[in-house]
């Protein structure tokens, strides 16, 4: 059976891996806020350094991080181009017919690029590279637990996520099996127009759905037999507790955010560097 890795969990056993998943969800959110707080070139420099530091702490190879940035290259180029050509300011660097490039435009383009890169790197460092999908659903369930009071089905949602994750590999196997079976009967999935190829998928989807429903039915019976009755009165085998390291990490992140705000304020006040 081929290995299907969900998400991009990278087991390097760093300190970041050992943090409570709830802490990592919170850290991820705070980090996003931090990327948007940055306004000054010094702040952006600090943000960039923090990203590199985090990668080093998580012991994730740079190659893997770069690979995860590949899908956003287009969006990044697009924002860079927009910023370079459409920002107006005081310092005109280059002008030709209708194209005016200002220094502010170049700065803004650089800032946006760093922001997007750090947004992706930061969140994936906390939420996917160092946290398994199951830990993540668990963390979300526990963080959202207060919402149960206002009848939000938090437990049901997280159970659905868990089961979906559990069945992804099973259903991929099943799809491959059905495809082989249809190929053996002369189905052709690789030739013809787009419409034709899309139509060729119908004989795969129908049996796949039928079997998925049958599986769901059997799983529901099996869960009932194991006394599943929703989230009420349910306990957990492993209860992670917030530890000193979690508190320290959250504190460090808050300090980082505060420092960025202060840098923005004083840099703007004394006119150090460029502020967007």
């Amino acid at each position: 059976m081929k290995s299907i890795s969900l998400g991009q969990y990278y087991a390097s056993g760093s300190i970041l891996h050992k943090l409570d998943p709830r802490t990592k969800v919170l850290l991820g959110m705070l980090y996003i806020v931090c990327t948007f707080l940055c306004k000054n070139i010094i702040a952006f420099g600090l943000l960039f350094l923090s990203g590199i530091l985090l990668i080093a702490i998580a012991k994730i190879p740079f190659k893997i991080i770069l690979r995860s940035l590949r899908p956003i290259i287009f969006i990044m180029l697009f924002t860079v181009v927009i910023n370079v050509f459409w920002t107006t300011g005081d310092r005109l660097l280059f002008s030709w017919s209708f194209i005016n490039i200002y220094a502010e435009g170049l700065y803004n383009a650089l800032f946006m690029a760093i922001r997007i890169i750090m947004l992706i790197t930061g969140t994936s460092l906390f939420l996917t590279y160092t946290t398994t999908p199951i830990q993540l659903t668990d963390a979300i369930e526990r963080l959202l637990a207060p919402l149960k009071r206002i009848k939000v089905p938090v437990h049901e949602f997280s159970m659905m996520m868990t089961i979906a994750l559990r069945f992804v590999p099973t259903l991929i196997d099943e799809t491959e099996r059905i495809m082989s079976a249809q190929k053996a009967r002369g189905a052709d999935f690789s030739n013809g127009s787009l419409v034709k190829r899309a139509k060729a998928l119908i004989p795969i989807l129908v049996p796949l759905f039928v079997s998925a429903f049958r599986r769901a039915d059997e799983l529901a019976t099996a869960m009932e037999c194991r006394c599943y009755h929703g989230g009420e009165g349910r306990t957990k085998m492993t209860v992670t507790r917030m530890q000193g390291s979690d508190i320290t990490a959250l504190f460090a992140m808050i300090v980082f955010g505060t420092v960025i705000v202060l840098i923005n304020y004083y840099a703007a006040k004394y006119g150090i560097g460029y502020t967007m």
Binding site: P133, I134, R166, L219, M223, G233, K236, V239
Partner: peptide, 25 residues
């Protein structure tokens, strides 16, 4: 066997029943 395992990790699946019963951790 595929349609009666709930969790992605063996021990989590074994724990599913007792968890439902509200047994202490």
């Amino acid at each position: 066997p595929d349609n009666q395992l709930v969790a992605t990790i063996v021990e989590d699946d074994v724990a599913f029943g007792p968890e439902n019963l509200g047994v202490p951790s």
